[in-house]
Each structure stands twice: as structure tokens, then as C-alpha cells.
Amino acid sequence: MELYFQQLLNGLTLGSIYCLVALGLTLIYGIMHIPNFAHGHLYMVGAYCVLFLCTLYGLNYWMAILISMVILAVIGIIMERLVFHPLRDSPPTNSFIAAVGALLFLEAGATVLWGADYRRMPEVFDKVVNIFGIMATQQRLVVIFSALALMGALYLFMKKTLIGSTIEAMSQDREGAFLVGIDANMVSMMTFGVASALAAAAAGLAGPLFLVFPSMGGLLIIKAFVIIVLGGMGSIPGAVAGAYILGLAESLGATVFPAEYKDLVAFILLVIILSIRPTGLFAKEGR
């Protein structure tokens, strides 16, 4: 019984990390319709950022995460301007291919700069606490609550501020957004900035729990896509739900299947769901 509660906590932790990445992706892909396949690799760069800020520059964990979020936001905006903005009128396959190019570049660049070895991020919150009889490192709780806080902040930004509302406005009626004077470029850049910052936060939170290496983004991006397809493209609640479902499924699945197959859960889930419902689980529109 305790084992299941343990895995439940793990599932929530994993789900929280997936959630932050999936939220960013659903903003970019579901709302702006830009297939940024390299989003997972932005997460990877974020992980290295936090790693170096902590180890090389000895910064406080939270500072490292905050600064990484800013750095990644800038990188994300640069990517949007250089790669996706010029391709906005081309067929979507071109954007996809360009994203693949960006992904390959980032992974190779990371390998060249930082080597292919797996690195460990120092664990800051390594004290073990006892909740309802389960032993858990503080880090897991930190991850869950930080993710919730970030989700809350994102919600407030998108619903309560006018600037944040422009993202949703643009997705609900693109022409209407232009007509009220919303600048498509601003929205694009802002969306990429926010999404990349979220990815950096996710990477920083996940760092102490998992290893850091150049190809860590590859699997993650596919899982993130699975999540937003499950939850419905462009649906924020869907992304959140999908992320936690996947996190829990993987965690609980690990108790049944051997560890190597854990990653297959996501793909098999996608294959099954799309085979039955080609538009995704909670599809809003048939995109």
C-alpha cells in the first residue's frame, strides 16, 4: 500500500514537471500553431543553465532558476524571430523541419560545449520528510508546490492582465485580435518567452531528481506532444490534466513493467488514443 502512495507522490512530481513543459508547448503549438519541436531542447539548455549557475557560479538554487528562466526566455524569443517568424507563411511541414534543425543544433552544441556525460545537479532540498507515513525528499514537495505556484502565476497572467489576454484572444479569433490592435509579433515573442521560461523552471526543478545530459530533451518533447494531444491542443486545463495523467501512469506503470519500458507508456498511450479518436481526447476544434 505504501508503495502505491510512494509512486503516487512520484507521479505527482513527474506530472508537475511534465505540466510546466506541456503548458509551454500548448501555448506555442496549440495557440500559436507553431510546431516547435525543439522545445524539449530548450528545456535541456535550461537544465544546463541552472546546473552551471549553481555549481560554477555558486548561486542560490532559486536565483539560479530565476536567472535561467530569463535566459531561456531570451533564447526562446531569438528562436522565434530567427527560425519561426520567417516561416510563418510557409507550409507547416517547413516549420516542423526547421524545428528539427534547431533541435539537432542545440543537442550537438550542448555535446560540443559540455560533453555527452551525464551530470548530477546538487540536491538542495535533500532532507527526507514524513508525510502520512511516506518518506519523501523535500525536493519532490518543492517541485509540486513550485509547479502549482507557476501555474497559478500563468493563470493570473493570462486571465487577469490585458497583455496576457492577448494570447488567448489571438487563438480565439486571429483577425479579431488584429482588429483591436493586437500585434501578432508581440504575441508570438511573448508566448515563446513565457513557454521557454516555464521550460527552464521545469528543468531547474527536475534537475536534482534526474540527470542532466544533452539528449534529455528528445524523449521529453515527444511526451509533451502526447500530453497536449491527449488534453486537447491549445487547452490549458487539458495540458495540466494530461501531464498529471501521464506522470501518474508512468509512475504506477513502473511498479508493474520493467523500468526500460516506462517511456513506452507515453507513446503507446498516444497511439491508442489517436487510433480511437483522431482529434485527441478533449479536442476543442478538429485541428
Binding site: 510557409s90 517547413n94 534543425g101 543544433f105 552544441g109 555535446t111
Partner: peptide
């Protein structure tokens, strides 16, 4: 070998653009 994509990645982007 492993550095190929540092060049080929942007190359792919330029080609498609």
C-alpha cells in the same frame, strides 16, 4: 561526427527557409 549537426542543424533551417 558528433559536431556535424552544429553545422547541419542551422543548414537545414536555412535550406527550408
Amino acid at each position: 561526427q558528433s559536431y556535424r549537426y552544429v553545422v547541419f542543424g542551422p543548414f537545414l533551417i536555412l535550406v527550408v527557409m
